[in-house]
Design a protein around this nucleic acid. Sequence first.
DNA 1: TATCATTGTTAGCCATGGCTAAACTATTTG
DNA 2: CAAATAGTTTAGCCATGGCTAACAATGATA
Lengths: 162, 162
Amino acid sequence: MSDHDQSPHLSASSRNGNSGDALPPVGEHARQYETVRNAHETELIEDYVELIGDLLQHRGEARAADIATRMGVSQATVSKMIRRLNELGLVTSKPYRSLFLTEEGQKMAETSRARHDIVLHFLRALGVDDHTARIDAEGMEHHVSNDTLAIMQRFIDEHAKP
Amino acid sequence: MSDHDQSPHLSASSRNGNSGDALPPVGEHARQYETVRNAHETELIEDYVELIGDLLQHRGEARAADIATRMGVSQATVSKMIRRLNELGLVTSKPYRSLFLTEEGQKMAETSRARHDIVLHFLRALGVDDHTARIDAEGMEHHVSNDTLAIMQRFIDEHAKP
DNA sequence: TATCATTGTTAGCCATGGCTAAACTATTTG
DNA sequence: CAAATAGTTTAGCCATGGCTAACAATGATA
Ligand SMILES: [Mn+2]
Ligand SMILES: [Mn+2]
Ligand SMILES: [Mn+2]
Ligand SMILES: [Mn+2]
């Protein structure tokens, strides 16, 4: 609970009585929450697959132990998760050997990584410092629609390194 | 699974070999994931409390049935959740009566709502259409640090309604 | 007032994502 | 080669957040 907590950063549009934002129609509102619930279902999977892809690319291999330290969870947790990724057809794994991504796994890794990068670069372009941007991007990435991604990308291109 | 899925929106900085983004140091990386896990623990609570606050403000009362339809979950799910909110000291509830927020609940509702508003208004100011902005904000809000929030607020103020 | 529709609760089920402890396999090293 | 160390898996526990089905209370209305 270090950072992401309460903030009295409200000003202008947020402070002024807030009359501008009524409740959305029920159906729409429900669909918003549903979208978030759906994202939560795939989030972790995506992070694992993305991380495995990154480890393969940068380190040449992806071992369970590395994943455990990188993710900050126990080896048991990783082991269980790998079984699941296997069942989902995203990785192949021989015991005591490096993991590899299937075709499908590679596609997911690429997609997730591209998305992650856009969000990260966008935050930096916005003026967020690198450390914070990395933290925020790791969580935000799973909740950014393609429309918004495209707009973020445009923003990056416009505010490119001067 | 309507929207938030694969996107080949990659361009510029995302496409070009990606050599610019090596793996972060292990400890830092682990702390990123940890922050996300922490956010997930409080997310739902925040959304409930925020919604209850909104219902109280806009409708005068917050009944379990309304929450269930608004959130798109079963009444049983809501009932269980209300018990939890009660145990956490965030709401008071007499059976078959409207819910109310405790002091602490009200604080959380205000904070969450302020944050939610900033993210929503930021997305709109960025150029995201209202419908998409609402969906994205509902998920993103829980993963935006105070630093980033402040920057978003500044962006809103600068790009205010002309 | 008696009935019925709405609202709320409870019980019991399931999947997910954590954990620790214990067992087992591989690799390194004395 | 034997022993120690490192890596992996399995078993069993727990909390969370969904669900359905059955039941209970409230409040409208016939
Ligand atoms: Mn990611
Ligand atoms: Mn992530
Ligand atoms: Mn919210
Ligand atoms: Mn939310």
